[in-house]
C-alpha cells in the first residue's frame, strides 16, 4: 500500500524534508503543512530538491497554512497542488499509511 509522507518543519531549519525525500519511494504522496509549506514556494534555495521530487512523487501543500503565512497560490512551485483540510483527510484515506516526518 502506498504511503502519504507529511512534512511540517521548515526545510531551512530541519532536515525532515531532506530525509523524507531520501526515503520516499517513487509514486508516493508528499504533503507539506505547517512550517513545511515554505518548501513549496518558488525561488527558494530548496526549490531544486522539490522540483526533483515532483518528477517522482505527488506533492501537495496545505492551503490554510500557506494563507496564514502570507502566501497565495501564485507563489507555489508549478506542479505542487494546494489542498484544504478535507483534501488532507482524503489523501490520508487514499494512501492508507501516513509517515509523519516530525
Amino acid at each position: 500500500m502506498s504511503i502519504l509522507h507529511t512534512v511540517n518543519k521548515s526545510p531551512f531549519e530541519r532536515n525532515a524534508l531532506e530525509s523524507c525525500l531520501k526515503f520516499a519511494t517513487d509514486g508516493s504522496a508528499l504533503l507539506l503543512f505547517e512550517d513545511g509549506v515554505y518548501a513549496a514556494l518558488k525561488g527558494t534555495a530548496v526549490e531544486p530538491h522539490v522540483n526533483d521530487a515532483l518528477a517522482r512523487l505527488k506533492v501537495y501543500v496545505l492551503g490554510p497554512d500557506l494563507q496564514a503565512r502570507g502566501f497565495s497560490a501564485e507563489r507555489i512551485i508549478e506542479g505542487v497542488s494546494v489542498v484544504d483540510y478535507a483534501g488532507f483527510v482524503d489523501l490520508a484515506a487514499e494512501n492508507g499509511k501516513v509517515q509523519a516526518w516530525l
Binding site: 521548515s10 531549519e13 515554505y38 492551503g63 494563507q67 503565512r69 502570507g70 497565495s72
Partner: peptide, 22 residues
C-alpha cells in the same frame, strides 16, 4: 534565518484558528 518569515505581508490565520500577530 526563518525569522524573516515573521514579517511577511498578507498573513491570514483565520483558517488555522490561531491568533494572527502580524
Amino acid at each position: 534565518d526563518d525569522g524573516v518569515y515573521q514579517l511577511t505581508k498578507g498573513q491570514d490565520t483565520k483558517a488555522i484558528g490561531m491568533k494572527n500577530f502580524s
